[in-house]
């Protein structure tokens, strides 16, 4: 799923490890999200949205829109 996660992470000066710690997931999971190898669950997508204080649609492109 296309997303702006890497951009948002870099804007905050975070490493994948840092973002993983904030979200409670592994660095591998962050990498898989950024490289579109994993589509997040609704729960994880909302956690990311809350962390970056943006709507989910601002971070993840809706593939059905």
């Amino acid at each position: 799923m296309k997303n702006r996660l890497k951009l948002l992470r870099v804007e905050r000066g975070w490493t994948q490890e840092d973002l993983g710690r904030e979200l409670g997931v592994s660095r591998q999971a962050v990498n898989a999200l950024e490289t579109e190898k994993h589509d997040p669950s609704l729960d994880l997508a909302y956690r990311i949205a809350v962390l970056f204080e943006r709507p989910v649609e601002d971070i993840f492109e809706n593939p059905h829109a």
Binding site: V25, S26, A29, A32, L33
Partner: peptide, 9 residues
Amino acid sequence: ESDEFVRAL
């Protein structure tokens, strides 16, 4: 004990 990505993989 892992996150959703590791679990699914």
